[in-house]
Each structure stands twice: as structure tokens, then as C-alpha cells.
């Protein structure tokens, strides 16, 4: 479909809207229905943005939505302003991630100001995802997930909060910030332990925490596993716990083969994901040094 027509139309609308805004700003314009003109301009910007969207001109759509959002703000329409900022963010996401983040941050400011933390947290998550996939800035990803988790916790949305926290935990471990990761995994595990639906997942979080302990120090891992078994008896029955014990044993004896064998056996039954593979590789490296590349 030919969308160039749409784009042209959108441009015209933008120009008209700009004119309206300007005329409303003048003295006479301000006297005669200035507010009304601004409202019209808002609507025009939104329409133009939608047309840009149809034409897949994402950055133009984003900037049009942004204009609309600013005008809404000028008229003290906070909710509309925030929605427009979110729309702008979504449009920019496809063209200019940094600008998308700016827009979403503006929306978050408005939402937090209005006390709507759940939705603010949701947008923090969106920003974190942008940092995660487009800009590859893991530190900022972590920061935004943490903020989202905080907001969710404040609103008693614990499962969403835990979801964010687990992300923070995984990324912290990737960045070798093990103490933080351990704290988070333990915290999530203890919070899910008492939930009838979630208690079956607790072992996974304990396992992750124990893995982090293991990378830091073997003895720590031993103590931690004992502690976890005491806290959550079902953990000692889990395959993860058995694997950990085997790994500890192998590590103590500096037996690389036994280590590999144990991991392999575990993997043959339930496949290790990439995070676990990375962590186990790090542990394995402490046994064999860096010489363990493929033979």
C-alpha cells in the first residue's frame, strides 16, 4: 500500500497544529479561545502521529506524540500527557531507543506523581527491556528492574516484583556481583516458600543462590546448602541439591571429570539454560584453569 500520501497528510496536519499553537500563544489568540485551540492542536498532533505510524515513519510519529504530550501537560491534562508520552515511547522504540527511554521516563514521572505506581513500574520494565536488548547496558537494565520491583512491592504486586527481582539477580550474577545476586535469590526463594502454588519453584531459586555461592567460595556453598535444607526440607530431595553435592565433592577433589559427569547427567534429564551453563562454566574454570577449551 502506498503510504506516502498518509505521510504528506500527516505533515500538513503537523504544520496546521503548529500554527494553532502559535496563534494561541499570541495576545489576541490567547484572549479568544486560546485553550480551545491548544486542544485542537493536541488532537491534530495525535492524528498526525497515527498517520506517521501508518507510514511507518516511527521517529516522526514519536515526535508528534511528544508534541501532543507536551501540550496536554501545558493544559494540565496529566493523564493524557502520560498516555501520549507512552505512545511516543512505543513509536520511538522502533527507531531511536534513547529517545524512547526519555519519553517513557517522562511518562513515569507523571504516573508516579499521580500515585499510579503499578503502571510506572510497568514502564520501568519496558525501559529495562530496551536497555537489555537494544542498548546492551546491563547496569542500567538492573537499575530499572530494581526500580520496577520496588514500585511493585509497594503496591503489593509481589509476583510481578519477584519477576523483576529475578532478572536483577540473574544480571547481577552475570556481572559477577554475586553477593547481590545471592541476596535476591534467597529473598525470592523465602518469599515463595510459603505460597502453596509457588513453593515448588523455591528450589530453583535456592539452586541459583547456591550456584552463586559456589563461584565465590566452596565452603560458603556448603554452608548455604545446609542452611537451605534446614529452611526448606524439600530442597534436599531435589535433583538440583543432589547435583550441588556432587559438584562440591568433585570440586573438593579437584576432579574435573567427576564434575563434568555430574553436570552431564543432570543436563541429560533437564537441559541447563544459558545462565546456568555460564555459571557452571565459571565454576569449572576454577577447577581446571583456563585450559579447558575443547579438546
Amino acid at each position: 500500500m502506498d503510504n506516502s500520501g498518509k505521510e504528506k497528510e500527516a505533515m500538513q496536519l503537523m504544520a496546521e497544529a503548529d500554527k494553532k499553537v502559535k496563534s494561541s500563544g499570541s495576545f489576541l489568540g490567547g484572549m479568544f479561545g486560546g485553550n480551545h485551540k491548544v486542544e485542537d492542536a493536541c488532537e491534530m498532533y495525535a492524528r498526525a502521529a497515527n498517520m506517521f505510524k501508518m507510514a511507518k515513519n516511527w521517529s516522526a510519529a514519536g515526535s508528534a506524540f511528544c508534541q501532543a504530550a507536551r501540550l496536554h501537560m501545558q493544559m494540565q491534562n496529566k493523564l493524557d500527557s502520560a498516555t501520549s508520552f507512552v505512545d511516543a515511547g512505543n513509536a520511538y522504540k522502533k527507531a531511536d531507543p534513547q529517545e524512547a527511554i526519555n519519553c517513557l521516563n517522562a511518562a513515569i514521572d507523571i504516573y508516579t506523581d499521580m500515585g499510579r505506581f503499578t503502571i510506572a513500574a510497568k514502564h520501568h520494565m519496558t525501559i529495562a527491556e530496551i536497555y537489555e536488548s537494544e542498548l546492551v547496558d546491563i547496569e542500567k537494565t538492573i537499575a530499572h528492574y530494581e526500580q520496577a520491583a520496588d514500585y511493585y512491592k509497594g503496591e503489593e504486586s509481589n509476583s510481578s516484583a519477584n519477576k523483576c527481582l529475578l532478572k536483577v539477580g540473574s544480571y547481577s550474577a552475570q556481572l559477577e556481583q554475586y553477593p547481590k545476586a545471592i541476596e535476591i535469590f534467597e529473598q525470592v526463594a523465602t518469599s515463595t516458600m510459603d505460597n502453596p502454588l509457588l513453593k515448588y519453584n523455591a528450589k530453583e531459586y535456592f539452586w541459583k543462590a547456591a550456584l552463586c555461592h559456589f563461584i565465590v567460595d566452596e565452603l560458603n556453598a556448603k554452608l548455604a546448602i545446609e542452611k537451605y535444607e534446614g529452611m526448606f526440607p524439600a530442597f534436599s530431595d531435589s535433583r538440583e541439591c543432589k547435583l550441588l553435592k556432587k559438584l562440591l565433592e568433585a570440586h573438593e577433589e579437584q576432579n574435573c571429570e567427576a564434575f563434568t559427569e555430574a553436570v552431564k547427567e543432570f543436563d541429560s534429564i533437564s537441559r541447563l539454560d544459558q545462565w546456568q551453563t555460564t555459571m557452571l562454566l565459571r565454576i569449572k574454570k576454577t577447577i581446571q584453569g583456563d585450559a579447558g577449551d575443547l579438546k
Partner: peptide, 13 residues
């Protein structure tokens, strides 16, 4: 596969 095999492949070829 090759990345994972670094973890899983036995040292004894």
C-alpha cells in the same frame, strides 16, 4: 553446541 560442550564434554575424549 560447542559452547555447551565445553561444560559437558568429558575431559577424557
Amino acid at each position: 553446541h560447542f559452547w555447551r560442550e565445553r561444560l559437558l564434554s568429558p575431559t577424557d575424549p
